[in-house]
Amino acid sequence: MRTPSRTLVLLATLIVAGCATHGPVAPTTVPPERIARMVQIAEAEWRLWGSQRIGTTSDGAQCAVLASGDCAEVDDGCGREMSAALCPVVNGYWAALGPAGTGGIERHTCPQPDRCEARWLPEWGPPLWTPAWSAAFISAVLRRAGFTESEFRFGKSHADYIVAARDHLSSAHDVIATPAIALPGDLICALREGARIAPTEIARISAGESPTPMHCDLVTRVDFAGRRLEAIGGNVQQSVSRITLDLDGQGRVGTSPVAGRTWNLVLRVHAEPGD
């Protein structure tokens, strides 16, 4: 994992680089039934994984609400992603990327399933490492909802599809710096180490040999009156999990850390007029 200083150096030195050989595409709109389908798929996957919710520790880090009611940070090698029933499900998310996501390290072999809920004991030796699959989860949800290759850049890095939307190489989303309104079907995104991207620095997000380490969740519910937002993401505390964010006074995803992350941008879906 990159340290915060490594991330800041990366952001300061990356140049704007396209991630495809073809040119810009015209924006397209997404019908309401497809937005509803995205949310339905994400909700169904969340239930399949046991409806895990995310809290925060006293020092602001993310933790998973366990069956005991405790909130704990789930160690590598533990959690639902290493259960015999659910670890193979991740390979279905990798498959959504196409041939590049169906082999190599982008697979979960699950040789030590169901060993621990949250804590990996030192006497067990080094925990099993698995590749980060949060972008594969988002890609799978959007592909299953009917998005095409020209509408969304399916990839194993969140920066892949953010850059594609930013550079108009995919047609269904805009990249908006926070603070920003987010609606069901949008993606909210953060740097993994929580560093802040100013609005003028969004152009620095790039992809390639060393993609900017980010995380995105799919917005499923927004309560503007209660100033709350719910979103679902993959590979969050080793599971598909739901987070709840407090919105600012204008109903926006703000610039302060919330739910263990600093949310830097909204990937806004082009909804049909009137939605």
Rank of each mutant, 00 (worst) to 15 (best):
A180N: 11
A145E: 09
H158K: 01
S157F: 09
P184I: 02
T200M: 13
K156D: 03
V141R: 05
K156H: 10
S206Q: 06
G194S: 05
S170M: 03
G194I: 05
V141S: 05
I176V: 15
V163N: 03
I205E: 09
L183R: 13
T148A: 11
V175F: 10
D174E: 15
A140K: 13
S171W: 02
R204C: 09
T200G: 13
A198E: 15
D160T: 02
E149F: 02
A195Y: 02
E149A: 15
A182K: 05
H173G: 12
F137I: 01
A198N: 12
H168G: 11
A140P: 11
G208F: 01
I188L: 00
A164Y: 05
D160C: 00
T178F: 02
R143T: 09
R153I: 00
A165Q: 13
W133P: 05
A195P: 08
A190I: 03
S170N: 06
G208T: 07
G208C: 07
I202T: 15
G185H: 02
G208W: 02
E201W: 06
A136W: 01
D160V: 00
K156Y: 01
S157A: 10
I188K: 01
A136P: 09
T148V: 05
F147C: 10
F147I: 10
F147L: 15
R144Y: 03
T200E: 15
A190M: 01
T200I: 13
L191F: 00
F152K: 04
E149D: 15
E193Y: 00
K156E: 04
T200Y: 14
A135Y: 01
S150C: 04
R196I: 11
F137K: 02
I202L: 15
I188V: 12
E193I: 01
S150D: 13
D167G: 02
A164K: 05
A145R: 04
E201N: 13
S157H: 10
D186L: 01
A172I: 10
R143F: 07
E149S: 14
A195W: 02
I188D: 03
F154Y: 10
D160W: 00
C189I: 04
G155A: 08
A172Q: 08
V175P: 14
R192F: 00
G208E: 08
G185K: 02
S206K: 03
A207P: 00
H158D: 07
D167Y: 02
E193V: 05
R153E: 09
I176H: 13
A140C: 14
E201H: 11
S171K: 07
V163C: 01
I205P: 10
A172H: 11
I188T: 02
D160P: 00
I197W: 04
A159E: 04
A140D: 15
I205Y: 06
R166G: 13
A180C: 10
S206C: 04
A203C: 14
A203G: 14
L191Y: 01
A190T: 03
S171C: 07
R166C: 07
F152I: 08
F147A: 12
L183V: 07
P179A: 01
H158A: 00
A136H: 07
R143W: 06
A177V: 11
I176Y: 09
P179V: 01
I162V: 15
S157W: 06
D186I: 00
L191V: 14
G194W: 01
S134D: 09
R144S: 14
S157D: 14
S170F: 04
A195T: 12
